[in-house]
Simulated scan of single mutants.
Amino acid sequence: MSSTGRLQGKVAIVTGGAMGQGAGIVRAYVAEGAKVVVADVAKDEGTDLATELGDSAHFAHHDVSDQASWTALVADTDERFGPVSILANNAGILRFGSIQDMPIDEVELLFRVNQLGCWLGMQSVVPTMRAHGGGAIINSSSTEGLAGMANTAAYGATKFAIRGMTKAAAHELGKYNIRTNSVHPGMIDTPMTRVHGGDLAMEYGASKVPLRRVGTPDDIAPLYVFLGSDEATYINGAEIAIDGGVTATHGFGG
C-alpha cells in the first residue's frame, strides 16, 4: 500500500481493529504515517496484525462496553505514541431478529457493544483531544442507520443512535476543534457479515447493489483516512453513505 503521508504525526485508536473493516482501516492509517493502537477483544488476530505492521502499531485488548477499559486504553495510547488525534469507533456486532421474537439479551448486547461502546469512546477521548488542540472522531454506523430493514430493528436502533449521537457531538465538540462524523457502510465482505450466510449472502447482497458487488474493507478505509486527515478540517456532523449506491435506490430498506 503506497503512502503519501496524509496522516503523518497523527495518533489513532481503531476499535474492532483486528479483523475485517477495522484491519483495513488500521493498515491504511499506518501506510499514511499514523501511529495506531489496534483495540479489540480478538487477541490473536490483533497481535498478529500489530506484529505485521511493526513499530507503528500496537495491539491492546479492549472491551468497548467497559468504561475502565476505555480509560486505560486512552492513557496507554497517550503514553505510548502521544495524544490521541483520531478515534475510529469501528467496533460493532450484527444480530438479526424480529421484533416479536428477538431475545432481550441479544438486544442488550447490541446496545452495549454498538451504541454504548461508541458513546464511551467519544467520552474517553474528549479530554486529551481538548488538551491538545482537537481531533477527529469517526463513528461507524450503517445503511441501517439511514433507513429501516426487516429483522434489524434492534441493530438498526443502535446505528440510528450512533447517527444521532454524532450530530449532537458535532455541535457540542466543534468549539474544541474536535470534528465528529459518521460513516454508513452498506454490505461489506467481512467475517462479521459472512457468518450470516457466507458466499450466498454475499451473492444476494451484491444483487441489491447498483454496482453489483458488495464492498470490501479496502473500499471503506480511504474514507476513514480522509476524515482523519487535515483535508477534512471543515467536515463536521456529516453522515456519509459508502454502499455502492444502495441508499440511492428507490425502496431502500423495504
Rank of each mutant, 00 (worst) to 15 (best):
M1W: 02
S3Y: 06
R6H: 07
L7T: 00
K10M: 03
V11N: 03
A12G: 00
T15L: 01
T15A: 01
G16E: 02
A18S: 01
M19Q: 08
G20E: 03
Q21V: 00
Q21A: 00
A31C: 00
E32M: 02
G33T: 00
A39K: 02
A39P: 12
D40A: 02
K43M: 06
D44A: 10
G46H: 04
G46Y: 05
T47N: 05
T47M: 01
L49Y: 05
T51L: 04
T51F: 03
E52T: 05
S56L: 04
H58N: 06
F59W: 02
A60S: 12
H61Y: 15
H62D: 06
D63S: 04
V64K: 01
S65Q: 02
D66F: 00
Q67S: 11
A68E: 15
T71F: 02
T71Q: 13
A75W: 08
T77K: 08
E79W: 04
R80S: 11
R80T: 11
R80Q: 14
F81Y: 12
G82H: 07
V84P: 01
N89I: 02
N89R: 07
R95M: 08
R95G: 11
F96L: 09
S98D: 13
Q100L: 14
M102E: 12
M102D: 06
I104R: 11
I104H: 10
L109V: 05
R112A: 13
V113D: 04
Q115E: 13
L116V: 12
W119R: 09
Q123P: 06
S124G: 13
V126P: 11
V126E: 11
V126S: 06
P127V: 00
P127L: 01
R130M: 12
H132G: 09
G133N: 13
I138C: 08
E144Y: 15
L146R: 10
A147W: 13
A147M: 12
G148I: 05
G148L: 07
A153G: 15
A154C: 08
G156S: 15
A157K: 06
T158R: 09
K159V: 11
F160W: 15
A161R: 07
A161F: 11
A161Q: 14
I162D: 13
T166A: 09
A168C: 13
A170M: 15
A170K: 13
Y176E: 14
S182M: 12
H184A: 09
M187G: 07
I188S: 05
D189K: 01
T193I: 08
V195L: 09
G198W: 09
D199P: 14
Y204Q: 15
R212N: 15
R212L: 13
R212S: 12
R213G: 08
G215Q: 11
P217G: 11
I220A: 03
I220H: 09
P222D: 02
L223A: 05
L227W: 12
S229Y: 14
D230G: 13
E231C: 03
I240P: 06
D243S: 05
D243E: 11
D243C: 03
G245S: 10
A248C: 15
T249R: 10
T249M: 13
T249I: 07
G251Y: 05
G251D: 10
G251S: 09
G254C: 07
G254T: 14
